[in-house]
C-alpha cells in the first residue's frame, strides 16, 4: 500500500470511527467526541488534497521562492474548519452540561424519553404509547451519573 492510500485511508477511517461512535454509542458525551473525530477526519481529508509530492511549505524565506510549493488553499480552509469545529464543540459541551444538569443522565434514549415527556406535559397530552419512545426494559443498566 503506497503512502497516499494509507493517508487517505487514515482520514476516511477517522470519519468512519466518528460516525460509529455517533450511531452506536448512545452516550451523549461519546457522541460529542465522535463528532470531534468525524470533523478531524474530514479536515484531514481536506488538507491531504493539497499535498504535492516533493514540494515544500508555501512560505518564502529570505526572498527565496521554492521551486515547487504545496497548495496553500486547503491549509487555509482547514484552519477555518478547525476553528468552526472548536466553536461548535464548545457550545455542544455547554449544552451537554445543561442537559445533564436537568435530566441527570448522559444516555441518549433516556434523554429523548424525558424530552418527549416534557414536550407532551407542556402541551397537556399523554405520552404516545408507540415504540418510538420505548420505556427502558427491566435489567438494562441504570443511567450512570457523574461519570464525567
Amino acid at each position: 500500500m503506497d503512502m497516499g492510500t494509507l493517508m487517505f485511508a487514515g482520514a476516511l477511517g477517522l470519519m468512519l470511527i466518528g460516525t460509529a461512535a455517533l450511531v452506536l454509542s448512545g452516550h451523549l458525551m461519546r457522541m460529542v467526541f465522535g463528532l470531534a473525530l468525524l470533523e478531524s477526519g474530514a479536515s484531514l481529508l481536506l488538507v491531504l488534497t493539497g499535498y504535492r509530492s516533493g514540494a515544500s511549505a508555501p512560505i518564502i524565506l529570505d526572498g527565496v521562492v521554492p521551486a515547487s510549493m504545496v497548495d496553500p488553499v486547503p491549509q487555509a480552509l482547514v484552519l477555518t474548519a478547525i476553528v468552526i469545529a472548536l466553536g461548535v464543540q464548545a457550545l455542544a459541551l455547554g449544552l451537554v452540561l445543561r442537559v445533564h444538569r436537568a435530566y441527570g443522565t448522559f444516555e441518549m434514549r433516556e434523554i429523548r424519553r424525558r424530552m418527549e415527556r416534557d414536550i407532551c406535559d407542556q402541551a397537556g397530552l399523554e405520552l404516545p404509547s408507540s415504540n418510538e419512545v420505548p420505556e427502558p426494559y427491566p435489567g438494562s443498566p441504570k443511567p450512570q451519573q457523574g461519570e464525567y
Binding site: M7, M15, T49, V70, V73
Partner: peptide, 25 residues
Amino acid sequence: LAGLGLLLAAILQRLNFGQPPMIVG
C-alpha cells in the same frame, strides 16, 4: 455504517495523492 464504509472505500480508490490539480493553488 457498512454503507458509509463502502462509499468511503470506493472513494479511496479514486483519490489522487501527490498530484493535485492546483488550479487556484
